[in-house]
């Protein structure tokens, strides 16, 4: 599978974890204090608690329920209830390929050899939820893939589409560095109204 945008860099500052998703796969998206991004299955293997409710401590993500700490490879390296125990290698969280490029965080669930999307120097403007499935949104623009959709005629915008549910997706929009952010933002809201069939 291709790279999918799951959030903007500015929404996940160092030391932060947030929930995200690609269709039915729920993700815990987090950033180490030194700025490395990770996308993991949003479930602690101990008791099934969502890791996106956890906290970043050093270069680990800790579960909020019992404080189990997972290193950047997703392996459990500390169990507070048993401080002297070295946790077995078998306790680990499923991890996904994750990288930041152009201010956008990208995830590939199946892993990929594809290079990260080329953004042509555009900068992130904002993320917007739209009540339309990702394939339907791509079809609106006549695009086959929804990794990125170029809308050159309007502010040289580039839309990176994140499939969420059968009826919703998240659009992460980028535009030329010299574009007026307010104008682009307004254009996006109009676009959403059109796509959702609401008179703007």
């Amino acid at each position: 599978m291709d790279w999918v945008a799951v959030g903007l860099k500015e929404d996940v500052p160092p030391g932060m974890v947030i929930p995200s998703r690609i269709s039915d796969t729920e993700l815990a998206l987090w950033c180490t204090p030194s700025g490395r991004y990770h996308a993991w299955s949003d479930r602690c293997p101990h008791r099934g608690m969502r890791l996106s409710h956890g906290f970043v401590r050093g270069d680990t993500l800790a579960c909020i329920y019992h404080g189990w700490q997972y290193n950047e490879a997703g392996s459990c390296e500390y169990i507070p209830a048993h401080p002297k125990l070295t946790p077995p290698d078998t306790i680990c969280v499923p991890t996904y390929a994750c990288a930041e490029a152009g201010g956008v965080i990208w995830v590939s669930l199946a892993g990929t050899d594809m290079p990260l999307p080329v953004l042509g120097g555009r900068v992130p403007i904002r993320s917007l939820q739209i009540s339309l499935s990702a394939p339907d949104l791509a079809a609106h623009f006549g695009a086959h893939s929804f990794t990125t959709i170029a809308v050159v005629s309007d502010h040289e915008a580039l839309l990176a589409v994140q499939p969420c549910t059968d009826r919703t997706c998240m659009v992460h929009a980028l535009a030329a560095p010299d574009a007026d952010r307010k104008v682009v933002s307004r254009w996006l809201e109009d676009l959403r109204a059109t796509l959702e069939g609401v008179p703007s």
Binding site: P45, H46, R47, G48, I79, H82, L85, I91
Partner: peptide
């Protein structure tokens, strides 16, 4: 199998 218990 689905979850991982410890001594605690």
């Amino acid at each position: 199998g689905m979850e991982v218990p410890t001594q605690a």
